[in-house]
Simulated assay, not measured.
Amino acid sequence: MELEQSILSKDVQCMLNKLKSQATNHAETPKQAVKNKALKMIKKLLVTKESIYDFGMLLANSNDITGEELGSILIAEQFEINPKEVNNTLLILADSDHWEVREWVASACSIILVNHFHEYYQTFYEWTNNESPNVRRAVTVAVKYVSKLKNQEMANQLIDLIEPLLSDQNPYVKKNLGAFAIGDGLLIYYPNQVMERMNDWIKIDDENVRWNIAKIFSSAEGMKYIEDSIELFKVLASDSRPTVKRAMKSTINGLKKRNLEIYSKYFEEGDLTF
């Protein structure tokens, strides 16, 4: 089989050409199932960690979308071979112009965090200060993925990872933080730790922090905690800054649609009624 032979001979371009022939008409890359099958084949045929890593680096540096996606996962899985090189490579790919590559890199970072949490944590934390919003956003997505482990020992450190981003002004980062990484991620698996931290965050007089808190409550999971967080909600409702007011309006409208009972009990025409 030509695909198998290209992998065994580490002919990256030949392998990628074969995969491109399976790309869909509306996408630049093959379907997820095809790429997952390719990953399994690479690991089966190349056998050793070193060979898989070397091939992964070739793919990651191929300047090809599919190659960068596959390569990011392969080198993440073999992180221990060369941690610095892996991090530097993923850091570059995290700022890719192509959104699918950025998604795969976020997944790759979550793999490293799961398997090498203490070794990689501080290095990954530095990504929160990166000048690229794409890189900072990768942190939020990776944290959400890792939160599914339900490892209580990781809880506070995972929250620490995203905490610096609460004040981030970039729309791409914000979109993936409050409702997504926290509301649909951390809050589901570590509710006590997140709610405790939110009581600290509400004291921060920053409109982006307040925006994110409001957005946490806009998630399906976050809405479950509104009634127990009315004092916190009062602070949000009293914030006159347009950014916060818009987030609150969106959250309250969502509550009306999803939980009319709680909405009717505490709100009237979108405002708190105490």
Rank of each mutant, 00 (worst) to 15 (best):
Met1Ser: 12
Ser6Thr: 11
Ile7Asn: 06
Val12Gln: 10
Gln13Val: 02
Cys14Phe: 10
Asn17Ser: 09
Gln22Asp: 15
Ala23Val: 00
Ala27Leu: 13
Val34Asp: 08
Lys37Val: 04
Lys40Ala: 15
Lys43Cys: 14
Leu45His: 07
Thr48Asp: 15
Lys49Glu: 11
Ile52Thr: 12
Tyr53Lys: 09
Leu58Cys: 10
Ala60Tyr: 14
Asn63Tyr: 15
Asp64Trp: 11
Glu68Phe: 04
Gly71Asn: 04
Ala76Glu: 02
Glu77Gln: 07
Glu77Gly: 07
Ile81Asp: 02
Lys84Thr: 15
Lys84Gly: 12
Leu91Pro: 00
Ile92Thr: 15
Asp97Ser: 13
Asp97Thr: 00
Trp99Asp: 12
Val101Tyr: 15
Val101Glu: 14
Glu103Phe: 05
Ala106Pro: 01
Ser107Gly: 10
Ala108Phe: 15
Cys109Glu: 03
Val114Met: 05
Val114Pro: 03
His118Tyr: 13
Phe124Lys: 02
Thr128Val: 07
Ser132Val: 08
Ser132His: 08
Pro133Thr: 02
Val135Asp: 13
Val135Lys: 15
Arg136Cys: 02
Thr140Leu: 09
Val143Cys: 14
Lys148Arg: 11
Lys148Leu: 05
Lys150Cys: 08
Asn151Ser: 10
Asn156Tyr: 11
Asn156Ser: 13
Leu158Lys: 09
Asn170Pro: 00
Asn176Phe: 05
Phe180Tyr: 15
Asp184Arg: 13
Ile188Cys: 08
Asn192Phe: 09
Gln193Asp: 13
Lys203Asp: 06
Lys203Tyr: 02
Ile204His: 02
Ile204Glu: 01
Trp211Phe: 14
Trp211Asp: 03
Asn212Ile: 01
Ala214Asn: 03
Ser219Cys: 03
Lys224Met: 03
Lys224Asp: 11
Asp228Arg: 04
Asp228Phe: 00
Ile230Gln: 06
Ile230Asn: 06
Phe233Asp: 09
Ala247Tyr: 04
Ala247Arg: 01
Met248Lys: 04
Lys249Leu: 01
Ser250Phe: 04
Ser250Asp: 11
Thr251Pro: 02
Ile252Gly: 05
Leu255Trp: 08
Leu260Asp: 11
Leu260Asn: 07
Glu261His: 08
Glu268Trp: 04
Glu269Trp: 05
Thr273Glu: 04
Phe274Thr: 05
